[in-house]
Design a protein around this nucleic acid. Structure first.
Lengths: 151, 151
DNA sequence: ATGATTTAATTGCCTTGTCAATCATTGTTG
DNA sequence: CAACAATGATTGACAAGGCAATTAAATCAT
């Protein structure tokens, strides 16, 4: 089957492009003195969440981090004043993480760099049709999230 | 402009999909007791290189690693017998990295897991047309590699 | 040829992320 | 309600990668 080779080439390009783009976006964001891509993701996840807050475990899942990794990341972000941990009233084991005013403004301040980067490295190099295909195809890839139908 | 929003959604899906797929592929490869994705990339890069060897710096560029990072990675892979460092005859500063017999066989042994993963997590969820679009679009994204036309 | 500059790789030190173990709290069940 | 398992988050120990400094060799200029 030939379409199998096609898919492998597509996959390979997809992966390589991710590596290159990530590296360059990080470089630009660092050069512009704004938060890193990873921190941006955290802040945006919180901003988009209901009440602008999430539990540690919810946030970890959303950004694909281990629980312990997020504990450390949250430590750093809290120290920088970008987020705040607040005790969860109904479950005294859990912690809510909220975005602070500073977090909101830093997220916003990083956006122009990121937007320009996305545009230059990705958006302006593809056609409208390709953008549509990519949006839909990767939405399907993400959708069911049935990574292992073990049963 | 609406196609701008389209591109941002496309980009977002593309990035999220990469994260999910990478995580799951790593999980599967580890579970099957084969080399990690990153090691796979190194071995494949060497296998595809002329004479199955590359300089350290060439390899670092190819897999998007820092020089020092690659030194460490090469240390580990050499210790496991997957690669071999050999002095470069014309330039006594440089090192060639070669893939060993064991490296070749381990790369090959990892392929079925990776192939199945690519198929299940990516290939079988998209249409032929989408695969074509993705292949071509990301090829264009990769192509000029003019990440910063600083002049 | 000899000294200055550049290039290739490595090393020291630091940051970051993960796994396994732990602590605290909640839910479950006899 | 008392023991026990399950859940949420954190901590310790460790592996891995990056930056800046270092070593060694090649290249260039005089």
């Amino acid at each position: 089957m030939n379409s199998d080779g096609l898919r492998k080439r597509a996959f390979s390009n997809f992966f390589m492009a991710h590596g290159r783009i990530t590296k360059e976006l990080e470089r630009r964001m660092s050069a512009d003195g704004v938060v890193s891509l990873e921190v941006y993701d955290v802040l945006l996840a919180l901003e988009d969440a209901p009440d602008q807050r999430l539990r540690m475990s919810e946030l970890a899942d959303k950004i694909i981090y281990s629980r312990s990794g997020l504990t450390r990341l949250a430590d750093r972000l809290e120290q920088k004043g970008l987020i705040r941990r607040v005790a969860c009233p109904n479950d005294r084991r859990a912690m809510h993480v909220e975005i602070t005013e500073l977090g909101l403004s830093e997220r916003l301040r990083a956006w122009p760099t990121l937007e320009r980067g996305i545009q230059e490295l990705f958006g302006e190099r593809i056609s409208d049709d390709e953008a549509s295909s990519i949006e839909l195809a990767f939405a399907k890839i993400l959708d069911p999230a049935d990574t292992e139908p073990t049963a």
